[in-house]
């Protein structure tokens, strides 16, 4: 077995997160330690990038906060990620959405992906 995979199998815990990709709107619940208190901060925004593979993979979430664009990069296997909630699946045509940085307002929106809904057959 690949040595890197072996090391991570032993050391890195696996957490179950919903599947998400660039263009999706997610909420990351992130543990923050202040002094000796621990609390959970949520960061809600659009995923503009997923990068890397295996235990060192990361993703970047972008949101507009008080009119200012804020991006935050999270390591996917960080023990500080408490949970990830998928709010909306987006319909985008590329894997890295850096073009959103130069856009604002209406043109910076991402269309929601319309899923086929299972209809009950009588």
């Amino acid at each position: 077995m690949n040595a890197v995979n072996y090391v991570h199998e032993q050391l890195t815990g696996t957490k179950e997160f919903p599947k998400f990709k660039a263009g999706d709107n997610i909420t990351v619940n992130y543990k923050i330690v202040e002094g000796n208190k621990e609390r959970i901060q949520s960061f809600k925004g659009d995923v503009i990038k997923r990068q890397g593979s295996g235990a060192t993979a990361t993703f970047t979430v972008r949101k507009i906060s008080d009119g200012v664009g804020v991006e935050r990069l999270f390591p996917l296997s960080s023990p500080n990620i408490d949970s990830i909630v998928l709010n909306k699946a987006g319909r985008v045509r590329r894997a890295k959405l850096f073009y959103l940085r130069s856009r604002s307002g209406k043109s910076a929106r991402i269309k929601e992906k319309r899923m086929a809904v299972e209809t009950k057959t009588p």
Binding site: A3, V4, V7, L11, T12, V33, T56, P75
Partner: peptide, 21 residues
């Protein structure tokens, strides 16, 4: 030398590491 990766300690601090056989 086998390669590099990074691991997290329980506090969430990431350390770059080299794997050596």
């Amino acid at each position: 030398k086998i390669g590099m990766t990074s691991i997290f300690d329980p506090g969430g601090k990431q350390t770059a590491c080299t794997i050596i056989e």
